[in-house]
């Protein structure tokens, strides 16, 4: 084979690799849609949001298929966890850059990396045997939106902390020197100089943690109580879309099974929307 034909072959193989990798998302979407079709046909799209409750059955006519409370559960847990983890993560990153002596900062980074390495089922296990009984003493049943938010916040904290840490490291040192020369206080430097300069990195971190929070399954399945309802308070139990799939998939037949693929489809749509929003927002912000 001549070098050039070898190169051409190489390019095609590489294209095949890249094409296949890129096609996985499409494959996922196609298979979710295919498996959802029976439910979409027999139940109809509207019923997933208008039925009185979630009591799925093998045959669409016998069941009720409202996904809205679980979508609300997913969004509430996600919002709560992001609201809690974001300031904590920013604080951890600030600590490593501006407050801790170098040794302690390194230890702190290690710790956050360790935290990132703990699998979700272990967080869930800990939540189940420690956190839920504790919350139960405050307000039964313990397994609740709050338990979910706390565990979820803990799980996404490393993501935002590490991203923020990276973003802060990229702030040019001249900015800091300039701020010091102007006699700005430390808090004024952080709020007025560092955060604006690191904005896009911080923002990417928030988007990443939001995606992670939306998709988390096992830990939430273990601590949230899994009652299908829109929680009226932090102490009410609830079920997320992800937990719903994990809880019922092994048991589901017929239209019930298909309805679970519909919830998967809703999740995928949520993630795509999030990615699109991130891109749209970041484009708007770069030249602000």
């Amino acid at each position: 084979m001549s070098p050039s034909s070898k190169d051409r072959l190489l390019v095609w193989v590489l294209r095949a690799c890249a094409g296949l990798s890129g096609a996985i998302v499409l494959l996922i979407a196609v298979f979710l849609v295919l498996e959802s079709l029976p439910a979409l046909r027999n139940v109809g799209f509207a019923r997933f949001f208008s039925d009185p409750s979630w009591h799925p059955a093998r045959y669409a006519a016998d069941g009720a298929y409202n996904l809205a409370p679980m979508l609300a559960g997913t969004l509430l847990a996600m919002a709560g966890a992001v609201a809690l983890a974001t300031p904590l993560g920013f604080c951890a990153a600030l600590f490593c850059h501006f407050y801790a002596p170098p040794g302690l900062a390194r230890a702190c980074r290690r710790l956050i990396e360790l935290l990132a390495g703990i699998p979700s089922v272990v967080y869930g296990f800990w939540g189940l045997v420690t956190l839920v009984p504790l919350l139960n003493k405050v307000q039964p049943p313990g397994a609740s939106l709050l338990a979910g938010i706390l565990i979820l916040a803990l799980m996404i904290l490393p993501t935002i902390a590490l991203m923020a840490d990276g973003a802060l490291a990229n702030v040019p040192a001249e900015y800091l020197r300039g701020a010091a020369a102007l006699g700005l206080s430390r808090s004024a430097t952080i709020v007025g100089v560092v955060f604006p300069a690191a904005k896009s990195g911080l923002f990417t971190g928030v988007i990443l943690e939001t995606g992670r929070a939306a998709g988390e399954t096992m830990a939430l399945l273990m601590v949230c109580g899994n009652v299908v309802q829109v929680p009226k308070s932090l102490f009410d139990p609830m079920r997320t879309l992800t937990a719903n799939i994990a809880l019922e998939m092994g048991y589901a037949l017929g239209d019930h099974r298909s309805a679970l693929f519909v919830s998967g489809l809703v999740l995928l749509a949520l993630i795509v929307a999030l990615a699109a929003a991130a891109e749209w927002l970041s484009k708007g912000r770069v030249y602000e």
Binding site: V25, I28, L32, T217, I245, A275
Partner: peptide, 28 residues
């Protein structure tokens, strides 16, 4: 166009929840 499409789809893939991979895996 191809490269950009691949990269964008990989970005989305990175965010797909693991349970959705589970559903996809069972189906495919």
């Amino acid at each position: 166009l191809f490269g950009r499409a691949v990269r964008r789809s990989l970005d989305v893939l990175a965010g797909v929840p693991s349970i959705v991979f589970g559903l996809f895996g069972t189906a495919l």
